[in-house]
């Protein structure tokens, strides 16, 4: 069932996507900004988590700052094998995103791990176990990483 976002929910989502107010009682600070009581804020957040709108509240770690290597991979898979190949790829913990897309290169996934050599090893292993050649496109430059969505403040989606 679809969860209907209220005006307050949208305000909460916009605020939650900004920088988290780091303090011993961060939710109290957010509630004050929204002019509501903390218990109400926590309840609305809990409801939106239950409805699957909020995936999590936490840190996004800068993989390059801790020396991690990341690459976008693509392959061409017959539609009848897509689910099976995707399942094999997903077993790798460094694979965080994996999508079936509507082009000739149809299976796209991201891979992060400690270094380039390890990434090459994982890709070679995946090519062997799936029988599918994999294109690896490592990040050269980052122009934008921002995952905040404008939720507006009205009911109409």
């Amino acid at each position: 069932m679809d969860y209907e976002l209220s005006v307050l929910d949208r305000k909460i989502l916009n605020l939650l996507q900004k920088d988290f107010p780091l303090s011993e009682q961060p939710f109290a600070a957010m509630a004050a900004e929204l002019n509501i009581v903390e218990e109400d804020l926590l309840k609305h957040i809990a409801d939106m988590k239950k409805a699957g709108i909020i995936r999590r509240i936490g840190a996004i770690i800068e993989s390059r700052a801790i020396g991690f290597y990341s690459t976008l991979c693509a392959c061409r898979v017959e539609n009848s094998r897509a689910d099976e190949v995707a399942a094999i790829i997903n077993r790798q913990t460094g694979v965080t995103h994996n999508y079936l897309r509507d082009q000739e290169y149809n299976l796209w996934f991201t891979l992060s791990c400690e270094n380039e050599q390890k990434a090459r090893g994982i890709i070679a292993e995946l090519e062997a176990s799936t029988g599918v050649p994999i294109l690896s496109m490592p990040t050269e430059r980052v122009y934008k990483i921002k995952v905040a969505l404008d939720m507006g403040e009205n009911n109409a989606i």
Binding site: L13, D19, A59
Partner: peptide, 27 residues
């Protein structure tokens, strides 16, 4: 809290916030 703040200032933490599911959020 101050350790977390420092990790954020150093850039090890890119940001701290809610991560939404695009589809469920209307996108």
């Amino acid at each position: 809290v101050s350790r977390i703040e420092l990790l954020r200032e150093q850039g090890v933490i890119r940001r701290i916030s809610a991560i939404l599911r695009h589809q469920k959020a209307g996108y």
